[in-house]
Each structure stands twice: as structure tokens, then as C-alpha cells.
Amino acid sequence: MPHDDHDHPHALLPPDPALRVKALETILTRKGLIDPAALDEIIDTYQNKIGPQNGARVVAKAWVDPEFKAELLKDATSVVADLGFYGRQGEHMVVVENTPEQHNMVVCTLCSCYPWPLLGIPPGWYKSDAYRARAVREPRKVLAEFGVTLPTTSSVRVWDSTAEVRYLVLPMRPLGTDGLSEDELVGLVTRDSMIGTGLPEEPS
């Protein structure tokens, strides 16, 4: 049975993680320091209201509206805020555009920085040691694990989110989508394509 480092107060809580969370929540609630209804509200927000559908809206709009795209690449924070996407972990946004010559990919090697208002809570793999350790050193091998192979004519630029600036990748619009509306295009934008570990879906 592993033991916590006993110099740290957390070791005083139950070791099982679910029980540890429950214990801390109970203690804080009894002291009037947290409101359980507020916790439900926070969870509901990130489970149901804020997620990759927000980023997909931004990407699809950039695909159909060149003026919007130019503004987005120049000053993402205010442009996405105008669409209602602003808040915690998205206070300073930069959007980086994929081209045939350059593919962008985002990581946070030091923790798990991620643009919450546009993509929601990061998926497990984004927070994993393997992704954090390897994305900067061997992005192409990592991409292969996502089923993505880039041509050798394309360079990879990996963005390590070391400050409070949050990066969103603007993927290339898939071929054969000229006739699609913005709403239809939203459905092709995957979460991973906006992190840079995936590509948008092809139209069916």
C-alpha cells in the first residue's frame, strides 16, 4: 500500500481519491466555505454548456468569412469574446492557422493549460505524462498515434503553453466543402483538430 509524503497535509485525508474529494468537500461545506449547489453549477457548466462546440463555431466562421478570419488571427481575444466566448482560462487568446506548409499543435508541458471557453475541459490524454513529455520532442510520432501523418513538405510548429496565453489551432478547411453552410461546417470541426492532434472530418 503506497503512502503519501507525510510532510504534506493532504496525507491526513483518506487515500482513496474519490473519498479524499468527498472528505474535503464535506469539511469545506460544514464550515460554510463552499456551497454544494455552486459545485453542481460549475460541473453543469463544463459538462453541458462550454465545450468544443464553441471553438468549432469560431473555426467554421473563419472558413466562410475571410474578414472574420483576418480579425481572428490578428486579435483573437476580442473577436471570440464578441461571439460570447470569454472567461476563465481563455482571457488571452491566440489563434494559429494551419497551412499546407505548416501544421500547428498545442501542448502544456508544465501542467494542462487549455482554452476552456472554446474547448471546455481538456481530455485525459492532453493532461497525460506521455503527451506532455513527447509532444514537444517528437510531435510527428505523437500525431501518428492519433492517426495523422503529415507530408514531409509540412513543418510542425508546437506551441508549449507556458503562460496565460491560450492557443487554438485553425485547421485547414477540408476539400469538397465549398457548398456547405457555416452550420454544416461546424459539424466537421473536431476538438482534436483545434488542438492540432487531428484533422477536421471529411464531408460525407
Binding site: K22, E25, L28, I34, A38, D40
Partner: peptide
């Protein structure tokens, strides 16, 4: 729960 307790 862990995320919400931390934010709160």
C-alpha cells in the same frame, strides 16, 4: 467534484 471544489 474535484474540479468544482478546487474552483469554488
Amino acid at each position: 467534484r474535484a474540479l468544482a471544489v478546487t474552483l469554488a
